[in-house]
Design a protein around this nucleic acid. Structure first.
Length: 486
DNA sequence: ATGTTC
């Protein structure tokens, strides 16, 4: 029993961080402190009511960063039985497989303190890491069909170097290293341009809130033992990546949502929201969607892996061959999958929600069985990100925690209300602590200013306050790489 | 988020 290392936590305000909201259709369980809860948009509860109309739903939870989305809020955990449940393309959303990856280097923050060196590093990263798509002919050694079907196992060995171990360290779960038996006809039906574009977009960041950051770690005092086991130390330079399956996942959403809608019509299912689409897991349409969603998860993991590979090339250019960049974990926050909860098989949808399994949970990968796996939480630009460990109390929310800060204002409103100078101040431009960014003009990414987001520290405070997870490390930004609309 | 764009 004592072999499991539990994170140290002293939840002080559990009662004040949990709210059961009773609606006509059932309850939605909200994890947020009183202030965040009071500030929530009332539309998220109307949305919860319509989601709770889907037959067979067992549970619906909101994380503290919850906000309105299409059909279903970002920040939702929605659960069915595996045996006779539903799968919903609307709940998964269109950014299928979007998630986080962290690599730990053997560098200390003092090794990258010099601003000119950091700028050089960002320039190097831009050389290897396109924002939109690789030039025609790049990655001629990759097979998109292998990647779609086998994920990381579909990559040639060249892309799996020892200094960023993937094969050697079984640190990925069955979701992230999924391998599926795809129906050839299903894949044959995908238009040629998606195969071409899919290949060219591998190892590219994309736009919106996606990013790659160079960060340094501040280990939380109370979880030093876990941090040590995970190979982390104070001041360690880490690379955090936030990206997804790019156009492939968008194609799956666009093509298979109408297909699931036809199944609903055939079977006589519906809710008050015509945009909320779902199908039985054991219907032909439900199975086809779930398979194709899995293909997007494979693409997303490979995309993040190749982004990390590109960043490693940049680091090797600058720091030489002694540089190490070990994978800590890769973890998605937009997907649906089978998991074991309370000894039962459940089908868990997470839309903008991060799995945080505690020590001993059977779905942990072996290397993290004794601590729980790292839960990777991105902050907004210029603020902190977090690496957390799940607590047993997280079972209340099916081991889901937040996926970031959560937007407080739209992109257009942010551009209207926030000035470039205010953004620059948030990035500490002109000081020794400046967060180096890959854009000369901050105006092109103004909609991603931290002023567009909630305070991530307060979001994390609600997660720890509710006893769902505990902080292992706070990750402070040193440099940020982002795509921008030209 | 992405792609296509009246």
């Amino acid at each position: 029993m004592s072999k499991h290392l539990q994170p140290n936590v002293n939840p002080t305000g559990f009662e004040s961080c949990y709210h059961e909201v009773k609606l006509a259709e059932g309850s939605v369980h909200v994890y947020a402190d009183k202030e965040l809860f009071a500030g929530l948009d009332p539309r998220i509860f109307e949305m919860a009511g319509r989601n709770l109309q889907i037959p067979g739903i067992r549970y619906m939870g909101y994380t503290p960063d919850v906000h309105v989305g299409v059909g279903t809020c970002i920040g939702t955990t929605a659960v069915w039985n595996s045996e006779d449940g539903m799968v919903s393309p609307s709940i998964v959303g269109s950014d299928i497989g979007c998630g986080m990856r962290v690599h730990l280097t053997n560098l200390h923050r003092r090794d990258v303190q010099d601003l000119r060196l950091r700028r050089k590093l960002v320039n190097r990263i831009e050389k290897y890491l396109p924002m939109e798509a690789h030039k025609r002919g790049a990655f001629s050694d990759l097979r998109m069909d292998h990647i779609v079907q086998k994920g990381l196992k579909g990559l040639p060995g060249k892309y799996l170097p020892d200094s960023m171990p993937v094969k050697r360290s079984p640190s990925l779960t069955r979701v992230e290293q999924a391998r599926f038996a795809f129906d050839p006809e299903e894949l044959n039906a995908v238009a040629d341009n998606y195969w071409v574009k899919g290949l060219r977009q591998l190892g590219t960041l994309g736009g919106g809130n996606h990013f790659a950051e160079i960060q340094y770690l501040e280990i939380a005092e109370e979880n030093r033992e876990i941090a040590k086991r995970w190979g982390m130390f104070d001041g360690q330079v880490a690379v955090m990546i936030h990206s997804g399956s790019r156009a492939w996942g968008a194609m799956v959403s666009q093509h298979y949502t109408p297909m699931a809608a036809r199944a609903m019509k055939r079977l006589g299912f519906g809710t008050d929201d015509p945009k909320l689409i779902f199908a039985p897991l054991d219907s032909p349409e439900g199975r086809r969607y779930t398979d194709m969603m899995a293909s997007a998860l494979n693409v997303a993991v490979v995309n993040r892996h190749l982004i990390a590979y590109a960043i490693r090339e940049a680091f090797l250019d600058v720091f030489g061959p002694k540089l190490e960049m070990n994978l800590l974990y890769d973890l998605m926050h937009n997907y649906a999958w089978e998991e074991r909860h309370g000894g039962e098989e459940r089908f868990v949808h997470r839309k903008g929600a991060t799995r945080a399994l505690p020590a001993g949970h059977p779905d942990n990968p072996d290397v993290y069985m004794e601590t729980g796996h790292p839960a990777l939480i991105p902050g907004s630009m210029g603020t902190a990100s977090y690496i957390m460990a799940g607590l047993p109390g997280g079972a209340a929310n099916y081991h889901s925690i937040c996926h970031g800060a959560g937007r407080v204002r739209s992109r257009s409103a942010t551009k209207r209300l926030v000035t470039v100078d205010q953004f620059a101040a948030a990035l500490k431009v002109g000081t020794e602590e400046e967060v180096i960014v890959n854009h000369n003009s901050l105006g092109v990414i103004l909609d991603e200013a931290p002023q567009a987001y909630k305070d991530v520290d307060q979001i994390i405070g609600s997660v720890t306050g509710a006893g769902l997870a505990s902080v292992v490390a706070k990750c402070r930004p040193l440099a940020a790489v982002k795509g921008a609309k030209s």
